[in-house]
C-alpha cells in the first residue's frame, strides 16, 4: 500500500469523522409527565365517552377548564402542580338533571414531584409518583391508579369509574 493511498484513506477517514454523528434529534414526548385519566363504567368496567363533563383545577387561575361540554371524551389529561404535593380537580356534571353544585365530585392526587432531565432535545421537566388518589362519591363510584409513576409516556395512569346504568 503506497503512501499516497494511505494519505488518501486518512483524508477520507477525517471527512467521515467530520460528518454529523448519528443521534436522535427532536423532542417527541414533551418535558413533563401529565397523568391521563380514563372514564370507565362502574357496571361493566368498559371505557365510556361522556359529553357533559366540566373538569377544572381547584384554585386554578380564572377557573379554566381542561374539558367542558359539548366536548365528548373518554379521557382527560390532568396536569399536576409540581411545587406542591397535592392537586385537586373539580368534576361538574352539566346534564339537566345533574347540573347542581351539590353533585359535583372532587378528585385529589397526592404525589411527589421530581425534576427530571429528559434529554438535551427536550430539556428538563417533572415526573410524579402518585401516592394516593381519592375522590368524593356523588357520581363517581371509585378511582384506580393504573401506574403510579407519571412520565412523559402517553398512556393511562388513572381510571375513574362513574356510576352508570347497565
Amino acid at each position: 500500500m503506497g503512501v499516497k493511498s494511505l494519505t488518501g484513506l486518512i483524508g477520507a477517514g477525517l471527512a467521515l469523522l467530520c460528518m454529523p454523528a448519528c443521534n436522535s434529534s427532536g423532542c417527541i414526548d414533551g418535558r413533563s409527565g401529565v397523568p391521563k385519566a380514563e372514564f370507565r363504567s362502574s357496571a361493566t368496567g368498559a371505557t365510556i365517552v361522556i359529553d357533559s363533563l366540566r373538569i377544572s383545577g381547584v384554585d386554578a387561575p380564572g377557573d379554566s377548564a381542561v374539558i367542558a361540554p359539548p366536548t365528548a371524551s373518554s379521557s382527560v389529561y390532568l396536569p399536576l402542580r409540581a411545587d406542591r404535593h397535592s392537586t385537586a380537580w373539580c368534576i361538574a356534571y352539566k346534564q339537566k338533571a345533574l347540573d347542581h353544585p351539590a353533585l359535583n365530585d372532587t378528585l385529589t392526587f397526592d404525589y411527589d414531584a421530581t425534576p427530571y432531565f429528559v434529554s438535551d432535545d427536550c430539556g428538563v421537566g417533572f415526573r410524579y409518583h402518585i401516592n394516593r388518589l381519592s375522590c368524593t362519591d356523588h357520581l363517581i363510584d371509585s378511582v384506580e391508579i393504573i401506574d403510579p409513576l407519571v412520565t412523559t409516556a402517553d398512556k393511562v395512569y388513572v381510571a375513574i369509574y362513574f356510576r352508570t346504568q347497565e
Binding site: R31, G57, A60, P61, R81, A82, D83, P115, G125, F126
Partner: peptide, 12 residues
C-alpha cells in the same frame, strides 16, 4: 419549567 395551566414558572 412553565406550568401553563396553573400559570406558574418553576425553577428547580
Amino acid at each position: 419549567v412553565d406550568q401553563s395551566y396553573w400559570q406558574e414558572v418553576l425553577r428547580p
